[in-house]
């Protein structure tokens, strides 16, 4: 069986919100695929549709060559789903939670140890602790174990790393890579752009529309412009000033610096420096940098806004 996912012209709206607009997506079997977008972009809706929890307004959804709407009962056996909110029983211990999910899927922990072994060894020392008393990272590991206990063909993870510290996030992604080697199709939603690089391919999604589907490297390559990081004594004032600048294509505040692109392909950095100096900025540092996924995302979302 091919454990891929095909989504054709999928639309879903709630009362007055158009959550997903004509989504098309083809996820290959065994792929580690990222759905990347800010809060409210429609990620959770997409996951719930894939997990048979919602019905689409229109469009087709196929998972493992099986229709998600008509044959939802079949799908539910093939699927490992981890919702965004921690959804295990907080008043059950780690081992009790795992045992429960094993029994629900008519299987035993021992039979599936090879699948979860790498993750399980990390939480085994706490197996008698109540799930509600685990740290955020531990909770996610347990949830992952529970989602994997029945050897699913497809694993859907809705924002598994939200609210988890940086070290645990990194560990979590390493685990996913380990799972991928076992041949499971993994779809991960995340609002963190930096996590895109961990995926083989990503879909950038915003306001219910997919901006682009590509490998992280290609998305970055397509950026096509020179990107500059600008630091000064007052980043916010520089931002306002650069928005007034004649040659500005885009300028965004990114943490400690501004990311700037110019409409011209050929120009001197000094020009920008002089402009900002005249505006009274001090301690100016301007350097050319490599664009990240987030820069691409911003550029794409601006483009799609103009399109409308």
């Amino acid at each position: 069986m091919d454990a891929g996912i095909q989504i054709d012209n999928l639309s879903k709206s709630y009362d007055d919100v158009h959550a997903l607009k004509n989504i098309n997506l083809d996820i290959k079997a065994g792929e580690l695929f990222g759905i990347i977008g800010p809060d409210g972009a429609g990620k959770t809706t997409l996951f719930r549709l894939l997990a048979t929890l919602l019905l689409p307004d229109s469009g087709k959804l196929r998972l493992c060559e099986t229709d998600v709407v008509d044959q939802y009962k079949v799908i539910r056996n093939l699927l490992g789903y981890m919702p965004g909110k921690f959804s295990l029983y907080q008043d059950l211990s780690v081992i009790e939670n795992l045992e429960f999910f094993a029994r629900v899927f008519n299987t035993r922990i021992a039979d599936n140890m090879d699948m979860i072994h790498d993750i399980w060894v990390q939480i085994e020392p706490f197996k008698d602790r109540l799930a509600g008393k685990l740290s955020g990272g531990m909770k996610q590991k347990l949830a992952l174990c529970c989602a994997l206990i029945h050897q699913p063909k497809v694993l859907l993870l809705d924002e598994p790393t939200t609210g988890v510290d940086a070290v645990s996030r990194n560990e979590f992604w390493q685990m996913l890579k380990g799972l991928k080697s076992k041949g499971i199709t993994i779809v991960v939603a995340t609002p963190y752009m930096d996590e895109a690089n961990m995926c083989e391919r990503v879909a950038l999604i915003q306001e219910g529309e997919i901006l682009q589907v590509n490998s992280p490297a290609e998305i970055v390559d397509q950026f096509g412009k020179d990107l500059y990081a600008i630091k000064s004594d007052d980043n916010y004032q520089s931002l306002l000033d650069l928005r007034e600048f004649d040659h500005t294509e885009s300028v965004f505040l990114f943490g400690q610096s501004l990311h700037y692109t110019d409409v011209r392909n050929d120009f001197l950095i000094d020009e920008i420096e002089d402009y900002l100096k005249n505006k009274g900025r001090l301690q100016l540092e301007i350097e050319k940098i490599k664009p990240g996924i987030e820069d691409c995302f911003m550029a794409l979302s601006v483009k799609s806004d103009q399109h409308e």
Binding site: L53, K73, K85, S87, Q90, V104
Partner: peptide, 13 residues
């Protein structure tokens, strides 16, 4: 309320 129903529904129960 706790979201565990979501998981129960997705299970073969």
């Amino acid at each position: 309320e706790l979201g565990t129903m979501e998981i129960l529904l997705v299970s073969p129960l």
